[in-house]
């Protein structure tokens, strides 16, 4: 914690949890979230595209091996859980897994580095340094996780209707779990809750885990020199969390889409 002495603890935390925003009301854009996530997404696509372009059937290079390992890992997960055939699911899973992992990985960068660098740059550009915000972990922004979850949700609905038709989808919403016309309203409420719970749980799980992790990093950063061992311990533990959350998001996406494309 090496900010101005006039800054209080709550101000420090508040500063770390505020996004760099442009715009007013709903039309506020979190430019740090978008910037970092797009940067990481492009990094992922660039790296994997590089391996894909150079991919040979002969002896692969190290990077190609790594990329192929990721691809095979996702492909195996998809094949294990997704019964139908789809050209979309596996690349979707790969994108979610790697992108979310990279965004989560930003959490391991010491919490002050990038915000302080941003303050220096912002200060040099003539802004008041205390008003320059930089939240570097896109997955600690609910907008990101919700965007992912809503995209998956739309895909769930799309696949449900594609496989079962509109009638089948409506029937699934109204005739389960009690297959009787009198229970249609009850069924509808239950099934709608189930349906909505899927994206909500996806978004909130990822957001909650990473937000909490980030907050603990910030709190650890507040306690002076003792932060070093604590930070190390929490970072090591967090490695597990970031991989696990990326994996869970991917796996649940596959499972939900698999459920959506299955006939009952």
């Amino acid at each position: 914690m090496s900010t101005g002495e006039e800054q209080t603890v709550s101000q420090y935390i508040q500063h770390h949890l505020t996004n760099a925003a442009v715009g007013e009301g709903f039309w506020t854009w979190h430019i740090d979230t978008i910037g970092w996530s797009v940067f990481l997404g492009l990094l992922f696509l660039w790296g994997f595209r590089k391996a894909a372009k150079k991919s040979t059937t002969g002896v692969p290079g190290k990077w190609q091996c790594f990329v192929e390992m990721c691809v095979e890992f996702v492909d195996t997960s998809v094949k294990d859980s997704f019964s139908g055939k789809s050209k979309l699911i596996a690349p979707l899973g790969l994108t979610i897994f790697v992108w979310v992992f990279l965004m989560n990985l930003m959490d391991l960068i010491p919490v002050d580095w990038l915000p302080m660098a941003a303050q220096q740059i912002g200060g040099a550009m003539g802004y008041e340094p205390h008003n320059v915000y930089m939240k570097v972990v896109p997955t600690t922004d609910l907008n990101t996780t919700l965007a992912l979850a809503l995209s998956v949700f739309l895909l769930i609905i799309f696949y449900s209707i594609k496989i079962k038709g509109v009638g089948g989808f409506v029937k699934e919403l109204t005739m389960q779990p009690f297959n009787h016309w009198a229970f249609i309203p009850v069924n509808f409420i239950l099934e709608t809750v189930t349906l909505i719970a899927k994206p909500a749980s996806l978004a909130l799980r990822l957001f909650g885990n990473l937000y909490a992790g980030e907050l603990i990093f910030i709190l650890i950063a507040l306690i002076g020199y003792f932060q070093l061992p604590l930070h190390f311990a929490w970072a090591v533990f967090h490695i597990l969390v970031i991989v696990l959350q990326a994996f869970i998001f991917m796996m649940l996406t596959i499972v939900y889409l698999s459920m959506a494309s299955e006939e009952h």
Binding site: A21, W27, T28, I34, N143, A147, L148
Partner: peptide, 11 residues
């Protein structure tokens, strides 16, 4: 906010 839209498009 609108970040949601941007992130969705990016995704």
């Amino acid at each position: 906010n609108a970040t949601l839209i941007g992130q969705t498009i990016a995704f």
